[in-house]
């Protein structure tokens, strides 16, 4: 088991009103699993993803990642965990505009303390995996949306993370590009990657092995006897 959450709650305080966004979310993910989380807009998907990716801290609950208690970690320790164990693919890419594709992909490896030669080699390898070996020196503004997302995926996988997190990775893409991304995910999965993907499109979710649904901050893992498709 790579990841397990118990009774995770996240509550925002808006003025004097408490807004619960996640309520008692519990789930776990096995090594090599390919999981999709679906839910309507505003249901708390991104919030859950941020907590899973150690970008955000829950209000209460317990979270173990690779056996490590995440909630007790300091900010810099979380940064290291994100760097080592987690690869992020964001809905809106978040590539640095002044860097080439290769430099963008190599950036997390820099933070991991890798030598320049190793960084560039790994980054090139990751770009090959997503089929962008001929766009290595292009800047994000010289790439299409689908290509940008593939660069972002390359960046996420360059450090060989244990867990790949994707928040609506196809949300900004057309169907063809979306399918390309899904095909990459499928291949990564078949090579043994653990993937959690958030989406609100059924066709995308269907690519995963398992689908959980979230509604108003409650995650339905199908275990509590609720409906499952």
């Amino acid at each position: 088991m790579i990841l397990s959450m118990q009774d995770i709650c996240k509550t925002y305080i808006q003025g004097k009103v408490e807004v619960p966004v996640l309520r008692d979310v519990s789930f776990s993910v096995e090594l090599g699993e390919y999981l999709a989380i679906m839910g309507p807009s505003g249901s708390g998907k991104t919030t859950l993803m941020n907590i899973t990716g150690c970008l955000d801290r829950p209000t209460s609950g317990t979270y173990l990642l690779d056996g490590r208690d995440i909630l007790g970690c300091r900010d810099d320790e979380l940064a290291e965990i994100r760097n080592k164990y987690i690869g992020f693919v964001f809905q809106s890419f978040y590539l640095l505009p002044k860097m080439s594709a290769l430099e963008n992909v190599a950036l997390p490896l820099l933070y991991a303390g890798m030598s320049k030669k190793d960084r560039l080699e790994r980054a090139r390898e990751a770009l090959c995996t997503v089929g962008l070996e001929d766009r290595i020196d292009f800047r994000p503004n010289q790439l299409s949306g689908g290509q940008c997302q593939r660069v972002a995926i390359a960046r996420a996988i360059a450090g060989h993370p244990s867990l790949l997190l994707a928040d609506e990775p196809t949300g900004a893409l057309d169907t063809a590009s979306g399918e390309q991304v899904m095909e990459i995910f499928g291949r990564l999965h078949s090579e043994g990657s653990t993937i959690i993907m958030i989406t609100h499109e059924q066709s995308i979710a269907d690519c995963a092995e398992k689908i959980y649904r979230i509604r108003d901050g409650v995650l339905d893992t199908g275990k509590a006897g609720g409906t499952n498709d």
Partner: peptide, 14 residues
């Protein structure tokens, strides 16, 4: 957002 991204992919405060 540049700072946010860098931190998200593992840049420490320092």
């Amino acid at each position: 957002s540049e700072i946010g991204l860098k931190k998200a992919i593992g840049a420490k405060k320092r």
